[in-house]
Amino acid sequence: MELLEHVTDYLKEHQLKLATAESCTAGLIVSELASIPGSGESIDCGLAVYSPEAKNRYLSVSFDTIDKYGLTSEETSRELAKGALDKNDATVAVANTGVAGPEPQDDIPAGTVCFAWAFRHDQKVYLITETRHFSGGRNDVRLAAAHYALECIPKHHRSVLEGNAPLDE
C-alpha cells in the first residue's frame, strides 16, 4: 500500500495524468493505483489490449512492428505507450506486454514482461523501455509487473525533468 500511496502522491504533486496500455497485466496497473483514495484525479484511463487487433485499433500499434518484433517486445510496448499518450488526455503513459505464464510462448520464458513509460513534458515526448523477468505463478507475475510499472514512474519522470531521459525520435 505504501508504494501505491507514494505513486499517487507523486502524480498529484507533479500534476501528472496517467493512461495505461496493458496487455500482460490486463488492467491491473490502473486497478492497483485506483485502490488509493484520491488517485482518480491523476488517472485518465486504463486500457487492457490483449489481441494484436485491439493493440492496433485502440492504440495504433503497427502490425508490422508486431510481425517483426513480436507481441512481447520493447518495440511493441513502446508503440503501446505512445498510443496511450497520444490518444488520451495524459501526460504519462505506462505500457506492458509479456508472458505471465504458466507456459512459455514463442520461446519467451514465462515471467518476461516488456515495459514502456512515455512522458509529455515541454511539448516533447520522452520514452523509456525495459524488459524484466518476474518469478512465480501467473498472477504473481502480473502483480509484480503492475507494481514495478508504477514504482518506476517517479524515477523515470525525474530523469525527464533532469534532461536525462531519451527523447522519442
Rank of each mutant, 00 (worst) to 15 (best):
M1P: 13
T8H: 14
D9T: 15
D9Q: 15
L11E: 03
L11S: 07
K12L: 15
E13W: 11
E13S: 15
H14W: 06
Q15N: 15
Q15Y: 13
K17A: 12
A19I: 09
T20A: 10
T20M: 07
T20H: 09
A21C: 14
E22G: 08
S23Y: 05
A26P: 00
A26H: 09
G27C: 04
I29D: 02
S31D: 03
L33M: 09
G38E: 03
S39H: 10
G40M: 02
E41S: 08
L47Y: 04
L47H: 05
L47Q: 02
K55W: 01
L59E: 01
S60I: 06
V61H: 01
V61M: 01
D64L: 11
D64Q: 13
I66S: 10
Y69I: 10
G70C: 13
S73P: 03
E75N: 09
E75Y: 11
R78D: 08
R78F: 09
R78W: 11
E79T: 11
L80P: 01
G83S: 07
D89I: 10
D89A: 13
D89F: 11
V94C: 02
A95C: 06
N96D: 04
G98T: 04
V99R: 04
G101T: 06
G101R: 07
G101V: 05
D107F: 12
V113L: 08
V113M: 09
F115Y: 10
F119T: 00
F119D: 03
Y126V: 03
E130L: 14
R132D: 10
R132A: 13
R132M: 12
H133M: 11
F134H: 07
S135Q: 12
G137Y: 07
G137D: 08
R138H: 01
V141H: 01
V141T: 02
V141E: 00
R142G: 01
A144R: 12
H147W: 13
H147L: 15
C152Y: 15
I153N: 04
L161P: 02
G163A: 02
D168L: 14
D168H: 13
